[in-house]
Design a protein around this nucleic acid. Sequence first.
DNA 1: TGCACTTAATTTAGGAGTCAAAGAAAGTTG
DNA 2: CAACTTTCTTTGACTCCTAAATTAAGTGCA
Lengths: 399, 399
Amino acid sequence: MKTISKADKKLIKKINTVSILKTIREYGPISRADISKTIGLNPATVSSIVTNLLKNKSIKEVGIGKSSGGRKPVLLELNSDELYVVGVDVGITKVTTGLININGNILNKTTIDFKDKTVETIFEAIKSSIYEVIKEHDKNFNNVIGIGMGVHGLIDTERGMSIYAPAFNWNNVNIVDTFKKEFNVPVLIDNDARVMALGEKWFGYAKNSKNFVLLNIGTGVGAGVFINDALYRGNNFGAGEVGHIKITDENIKCRCGRYGCLEAMVSGRAIVNRFIKGLEKGRTSSLKDRLKTSDITSLEIYREALKGDLLSIEVLKETGKYIGIGISTIINTLNPSMILIAGGVSKAGDFIYDEIQNTISKKSMNNNLKNVYIGETKLKDNVGIVGAGSLIIKDIFSI
Amino acid sequence: MKTISKADKKLIKKINTVSILKTIREYGPISRADISKTIGLNPATVSSIVTNLLKNKSIKEVGIGKSSGGRKPVLLELNSDELYVVGVDVGITKVTTGLININGNILNKTTIDFKDKTVETIFEAIKSSIYEVIKEHDKNFNNVIGIGMGVHGLIDTERGMSIYAPAFNWNNVNIVDTFKKEFNVPVLIDNDARVMALGEKWFGYAKNSKNFVLLNIGTGVGAGVFINDALYRGNNFGAGEVGHIKITDENIKCRCGRYGCLEAMVSGRAIVNRFIKGLEKGRTSSLKDRLKTSDITSLEIYREALKGDLLSIEVLKETGKYIGIGISTIINTLNPSMILIAGGVSKAGDFIYDEIQNTISKKSMNNNLKNVYIGETKLKDNVGIVGAGSLIIKDIFSI
DNA sequence: TGCACTTAATTTAGGAGTCAAAGAAAGTTG
DNA sequence: CAACTTTCTTTGACTCCTAAATTAAGTGCA
C-alpha cells in the first residue's frame, strides 16, 4: 500500500509490445496473423508494433511459412544475431564468463582463476574475462545489451552492491558502478543461487513453473526462490538463506555460529568432515589409500562411492537424508512445483537423490508433494553464466 | 510464461480507477486536486473518474475542506455506508460471523457453536449466522458486496472447495456454490491463516509490509504468507504448511505421522501433553490441585504460569523455544519484514514471546533479522472475520 | 488457364481515454 | 472590490486500439 501509480497510453503499448515479444520467444518462428490470434490483439495493432520491433532490430523476418489455403505468412523470430548479453559467474576461486545470445545460446565462454580475494584482483579478473568473450564476436560492444553477474552472499540488487560476501570477506562493496563505467552498458547483479534459478526459469526445466526453488549446495548452501513467475528477494535481499535453517539437534557447529544448520550438514566441507570423522572412528575406506586426509574432497568421496566404498556411500546417503529434511521444510513452507539442485553436490548422483526422495516422502505433507519434481538443473555447469545473462534478458520482456 | 495477455484502454481506466480508490482509502478524506497530485494523474482525468465513482456509490463527498488561499476543496471518502461485506470465520467448534464495512469496522458480530462436524450442520450454522448479522443493518442484502470465509485446512480458492479439512474430516467439499446460491453475491474462501494475514495487511499491523508471515498456532499450526503485497498460496494451495516442518529430533509423533514437527511441539494439544508428561515424571504443579488431568488446557496452563507455577512456566518457555526455531526457519527462508502470531498460543504472553526472541537472535542470520517485528496481531480476536471480509474488500482495489 | 475462395498483412476511419490549456467556480488577501 | 489562488470542469488535440476495407499472394477446382 505504498506506491500508487497511474497508467497512460504508453503503458498499453509497452504491455502489448512485451506480449508480442513473449509470444515470438515462446512460439516463434511465428507470423503476425498467428501472434494476433494467440494474444487476441487486433492484426492491425500487431502489424504496427511488429514494424517498430523490426526497425529497432529486436526481431527479424526469417522466411515464409506454409500456406494454409491463402497468402503465405511471413515468419518472425527474436533477433539472436543482434541481441547479446554477457553473463558472469563469480565463483569462490574463479570467474566464469559467457557471451550469450537472446535465445540463451552460449557463443563464447572463458574462465579465469584468481589467487587472492581482494576487490581489485577479482574485479580485474571479471573485466578481462568480459573483454575475452566478446573479442571475436562483438569487439565494439555494439550488440551487447547488458552485463549480468551472479555473486555469492547478500546482494543489494537495487544499489548494485555486495552487502556481505563471506568467502571474499567483502562488506558493502559496490560492484555495478565499476563495470557500468568500464563497458557503458546496463549492469545487473544478484545472488548466485537466485541467478541460477533465473537461468532455469528462462532456459531450463523451470520454464513453465510459476513457483519453484533452486537449491545451490556447494561451499555454502543457498536457494533461489521463484514466486508468481518472479524472483523473490525478501525484505532485505535475504530470502532463500536456507543454509542456516536448523535440521537436526546434532551438535555440529556451523560457520554462522549456531548448530545443526543445513549448511553444516551438507556443504562440500561438511561431507568431507563427516567422512574424516568416520575414519577417526576406525572405519576403513579405500579412499584413504589413494589420498592424504588433507586432499579429500566431496568429489573424491563420490568417485570412491561409485567404486563401492562403504564409508563413502554411507556419508553420501547421510547427506541425502539431511538435504531431504531441508527440502521437506522448503516444500512445506513454499509448496513449489519443483526443486532444482545445483552446485557440487548435485553431481553426487543417485546416492544422494534416492535418499532425498526417501526422506521427502516420509516427511512432506502429502498434498504439497504432489507433482513436485526434484532433480538436477537442465543448464548444468552453465546455469551460473546463463542465469546471470538472464538478468539482462528478462528486462527485455518486462514492463 | 504461459498466459500472454493484451492491454487496451479499458485496462488503463481500470488501473487509474483503482489507483484513485486506493488513494482515497489511504489518504481520505481527500480532494480531487490532491488525488491528482498524489498519483500524478491529470486533474481532468481524476475529475472524470471520480464522477463515475460517485455515480456508482463507491465513494461519497463528505464536506468541504479548508482553503489554502483559493477555492475550498470538496473532500472524498470511501462510501462506508453503502459498502458492506460479510466475514465468516469457520472455527473448529464454532462459526463467528461479522458484518463489516469497507473501512474494516465491525457493524455486527455473532457466534454459533456447532455440535457435530457434518457438512450440513456447519453449513446451516454459517447460513443462520449470516442472516443474523445482516438482520438489523441491511436485511435485503442491498449493500453487501460479497461474503468471505476462512476455513482451516487445504482450500482450493479457485473452485471454492475445501480439499481437505482434518478437523472436520472433510474431503473435496464445495463450499462456495451453496452460499452463492443462497445469498446471490460473490463468495470467496481461503485457508484460515491466509485470511488472517489478509486482515492484518488491510486493517492491521502489516499495512505497510510487502512481505510478512502470519503464524496461526492453535489446534493446528499454519502460516499465511504475504509476498510482494499479495497472498502467496503455493502451487497446490499448500504454501504455509509450516506445522509440519521438522524442528527437533525428539521422538514426539505428529498427527501427520512423522516426528518432531512444529505442530507436534507447539499446538495447544502439544503444550498440554508436555505438561502432563511433566506430571508423570513426578513434577509437581499447583494446576494439578485445581483440575483433573483431562480438563487441563493450554489456557489453564498459562493462567497457572501467571500465578508462578514452575512447571507451567517451564512448559510455556519450552513452547516459546520451539516456536522460535520454527520462526527462525521461516525468517531464513523468506526474509519477511514481520511475523505476526495469532491463535490460542498468541495469548500466552511474555513467557512465550521472550523465549521466541531469545531463540531467534541465536538462530537467525543477522541480516534477515534486521527490522523483523515479531508480535501479536492488531485485530486480535477479530482477525478471522475481518480477514475473511477482506477477501471481498481487496477485490475492489484490484485490477 | 481462369475464376472463386482463403489467408496474410496493411491502410483507413473512428472511438476511447488521457493530457494540456483554457475557462468557470469559489475563495482569500490587502 | 480588484487581483490573485486554488479547485474543478470543459474543450480540443493526441495516442493507441479496433473494425472494416483494401491490397497482396496464395490454393483449388472446373
